[in-house]
């Protein structure tokens, strides 16, 4: 009797602790977003979205930085999605499970933990200098693609692993080849999870400033990039640059730019959730 009571009490304590832990994060987020909204919401206007960088905080806008961010997002997706998914499929389904695949696995997990600025140095030496691409959009996107590849690979593998083996066995039993099984059964079933992983990884990429500064992304660009070889800036660099200015007006601009960046990432997370639900509904076994 007494033991049951103690266990119940432990249960209660744990659930309260869990609740507090959940709220710590949530409250911090609310405070942070509230603070940013108070500072920056009044500054957001069409002029701010379409404006060019300026020394005058009231005239300065984020157009070129936003255009750069959208370009980077687009190119990074284009590069990282096929490579990451293909690598994930290979490691999970095709690669021999031996010592080499173990080493590969450990290395990929380690890569996910490498500080982003290291990727910036790699991008500068290899893409910008060795490949002679300069501080272009392509260099930046390739660097960010490298940065998020480990995350995409891990997400792909997890999603594929989650597909019941009975489905695969049934496919093989009907005489399907490995590729047919992958293409018609495993990939559609795991696509929701893969896309969620990719989009969350991209949300991380769109918030990076450090590796892009190293690669040579700029702070002042008076034009929107027109090709992947153009110089560029991105929103996080613009925000970083504004925060370090003494005039109060720039701090407000930074808050407003943070709101735009937040909306962009929320939008992407929303798409991720939608895709996941969409694909889950489609699967009927």
């Amino acid at each position: 009797m007494n033991k049951v009571l103690i266990n119940r009490r432990k249960d209660l304590i744990f659930s309260v602790a869990g609740l507090i832990a959940t709220f710590v994060g949530l409250v911090m987020l609310v405070i942070f977003i509230g603070d940013i909204l108070i500072d920056g919401l009044g500054r957001i206007s069409w002029d701010f979205i379409t404006g060019l960088p300026s020394r005058n905080p009231d005239k300065a806008g984020i157009f070129t930085a936003m255009a750069g961010s959208v370009w980077v997002l687009f190119l990074t997706t284009l590069i990282s999605f096929p490579i990451g998914v293909a690598a994930g499929i290979y490691l999970e389904e095709y690669g021999k499970k031996g010592r080499i695949s173990k080493i590969l696995e450990i290395n990929i997990s380690n890569l996910a933990g490498v500080p982003s600025i290291i990727y910036g140095l790699l991008g500068l030496e290899i893409f910008a200098r060795l490949f002679n691409l300069g501080p272009s959009l392509l260099t930046g996107s390739m660097t960010l693609a490298l940065l998020i590849l480990p995350i995409i690979i891990v997400a792909t593998r997890e999603s594929i692993k989650a597909v019941p083996s009975s489905i695969k066995d049934a496919s093989y039993a009907l005489g399907a080849s490995k590729w047919q099984t992958m293409w018609h059964q495993v990939l559609p079933a795991s696509m929701g999870g893969i896309l969620t992983g990719v989009i969350l990884a991209l949300s991380r990429a769109v918030g990076e400033a450090a590796p892009l500064i190293v690669v040579g992304a700029l702070a002042y660009v008076p034009f929107a990039p027109k090709s992947p070889m153009d110089d560029f800036s991105v929103l996080p660099i613009q925000i970083f640059n504004w925060i370090s200015r003494p005039q109060q007006g720039f701090i407000i601009n930074a808050a407003a730019a943070i709101i735009v960046l937040l909306v962009l990432t929320f939008l992407m997370n929303g798409i991720a959730i939608y895709l996941r639900n969409h694909w889950q509904k489609k699967i009927k076994w």
């Binding site: 020394r55 040579g216 702070a219 002042y220 008076p222 110089d231 640059n241 200015r245």
Partner: peptide, 24 residues
């Protein structure tokens, strides 16, 4: 940077076809 940015911004009004880019 702030000085060069200010100069580039004003320069653009005089020579709009010259693209000045500044990194930090």
């Amino acid at each position: 940077y702030p000085v060069t940015e200010a100069v580039a911004e004003e320069f653009r009004a005089v020579q709009p076809k010259i693209n000045v880019t500044i990194g930090i």
